[in-house]
Design a binder for these strands. Structure first.
Lengths: 362, 362
DNA sequence: CTCTCAATTGAGACCGGTCTCACAATACAT
DNA sequence: ATGTATTGTGAGACCGGTCTCAATTGAGAG
């Protein structure tokens, strides 16, 4: 510890106190802005602080106050525009309330999520906003709740975990979107999601380890059943994670089927992007050969030909709400657990048409 | 300070020590993994730590070691995919080296940048990666350098500030792209950038407060001059920041000109996006009525009709390099200041054609 | 059977802040 | 003039870690 001898040793309250010829306690009162101080001494200390270019050590402050003024965010993938905006929104709101943000990426891996949580708790964040990667392993989240550290789940509720949530009405949205496809005449529908399964085949809902995915597939299947479509489960495609090429391969396989779907509902904009590119590569025209709806109003969906119909999620609002909820808890609010489910909005664009066979029959 | 009485008081080394029946110093040695400890005591302490669910307080650790294991990032706008990926890449690399990341958004405002820097320095980050918003006011960056805290500028070098930089060959890229437009026969070119100016008219390079913007405009003008184009400065459009509608209005004004440009080079994908949408709204066809090249290979540019030619910037690599450079400095590397200029790659797509009048003449 | 040395261990200072408490100085009431 | 608040200040404990240093122990050497 040669910090004392270094010429670049940061200035401390003690240094300022010495220069202002007051006690450390008094200098701390001025610089920390808490105790009563006379105007004259205040000015003297401030002058000394300025002269020495004093910068408070927030860490030391945090360890003695027990609050860090920081909130931790754990998202699945910052590269995904959905999370990008969420982070932006959370961080805007946090700053507005005087908090900072530490960001961690789980890459949708539970182990990474656990590690990230550990670090954030170690850094004594005042609260956490998490997009849980897997609702089957949540012991680490339970620990957070048990330790009374405020936690808000983002986008993905977890049944049986009593904690604040901000999400969207995934089931309803998927149901309504599927209905639109059915109303357009489609009977061979597919739902493509980024979930990983080995083998990549849908067996049953117990496989769906992300709650939002489950809710959406629920909605999709419910709509199919309501329309009397047989075995809609066969249209569910678990296209795998963001690992290079995995999704693309799944999508290509789907479209290469001798009896390919005539309409697809995509679980997120990345999957939809793969689908769109695959249709282009195969020379398929939307909506003539394939109708497409995607979750999330990504930038690109509005500029393709035709533009893609989407289920718009109010991400920015979601982030703001999550941050506000969290900060309220940090500030001591003790109301019962809240589920904040925001409505989605369907944006109809040119990507929905009648299935080809139907067109031919007319 | 009623922390001691609370039943949720976090477990400390002292608690663990008491339970393991050793001194605080010994427990700390085991938990911190530094001093020599006998195997037997080690196991006892570890068992006690586990039983109590001990979680080290990284803040306390940081204040006594003087290192926080954290690097700070200040970007202009996380919502921008360019920065999104940069953040992702930096954070990946940081984690790989055992560092965490605190994120701050400047919104391209110097004041916010200053504030963010202040907070990050307060939190004693071990190093900083910054995308400076304005190269005219850099006193706060100078302070960082002076205090010997490692700093890497990202994407935007600043002349006269002796500090590590990771950026791209903006001038060359802009020159080459402009040349392509000129070679296609264009003589009325525009360069549209997100810079804000009041009034929004290009007067001279001293106005260009972001170095990358300056370099690109330099390149653009140099190519125009080389081709003997007169008064190319008139084609420079300072379209303003991300404030709602500002860019859109500027772009619409540009296209509504009685003698509109026949080719545009866009400074980033957001501006290009506005331009693309504006052409669609006006019924202009690319590349027949307008040729378009954009900086940055944003997702959407590959799926439009036609797809947009872009200057691809190796963002992920840039982020990785910046993080590695920074971490090397944090670990004590003292080599002279490095400028890491990465090459861009031109991706030719269908958005470049001959100007219309030329076509008509054939 | 001492002596030296290395390996462990504990006591306590320290990091840079906050915060409690006792005390001095002044203001006001009696 | 005396007693009582009120205000400002300093001394020093504390937060939860790290780290220095001296003390204790046992093994091997002479």
């Amino acid at each position: 510890m040669d910090r004392k001898t270094s010429p670049f040793r940061p200035v401390t309250v003690a240094d300022v106190a010495r220069r202002a010829e007051v006690s450390k306690a008094t200098a701390a009162r001025v610089l920390g802005g808490y105790g009563p101080v006379s105007e004259e001494v205040k000015l003297r200390v401030q002058a000394a602080a300025k002269a020495l270019d004093y910068r408070p050590n927030e860490l030391a402050r945090s360890v003695s106050t027990g609050k860090s003024g920081t909130i931790g965010i754990v998202v699945g993938d910052i590269e995904n525009a959905f999370f990008g905006i969420a982070v932006r929104s959370i961080s805007d709101t946090a700053h507005r309330h005087g908090f900072n943000v530490i960001l961690a990426n789980s890459g949708e891996e539970v182990e990474a999520e656990k590690a990230a949580l550990k670090v954030l708790v170690g850094k004594r964040v005042d609260g956490l906003i998490v997009t849980p990667a897997d609702n089957r392993t949540i012991a680490h989240l339970r620990d957070i709740v048990r330790s009374r550290r405020p936690l808000v789940l983002f986008d993905r509720p977890i049944e049986g975990l009593s904690v604040d949530v901000v999400a969207t009405d995934d089931r309803d949205a998927a149901f309504a979107a599927t209905m639109r496809l059915i109303e357009a005449g489609h009977r061979r529908l597919a739902y493509v999601t980024a979930l990983h399964a080995e083998p990549p085949v849908f067996i049953g809902p117990e496989q769906l380890y992300t709650s939002s995915v489950k809710a959406r597939i629920d909605g999709f299947l419910a709509a199919c059943h309501a329309a009397g479509i047989e075995a809609p489960e066969q249209g569910i495609c678990l296209a795998g994670g963001a690992i290079a090429g995995q999704q693309r391969a799944s999508v290509e396989r789907l479209l290469a089927d001798p009896e390919p779907p005539t309409a697809i509902l995509a679980s997120d904009s990345l999957v939809a992007f793969e689908i769109f590119k695959a249709t282009q590569a195969r020379g398929l025209r939307i909506p003539d050969h394939l109708s497409l709806i995607s979750f999330y109003d990504a930038e690109w969906t509005s500029v393709t030909t035709p533009p893609i119909s989407v289920i718009d999620q109010p991400v920015y609002d979601m982030g703001t709400r999550a941050a506000e909820l969290l900060i309220a808890r940090i500030n001591g609010e003790t109301s019962p657990v809240r589920q904040c489910i925001l409505p989605t909005r369907f944006i109809a664009r040119g990507s929905i048409g009648a299935p080809r066979r139907l067109l031919a029959a007319i």
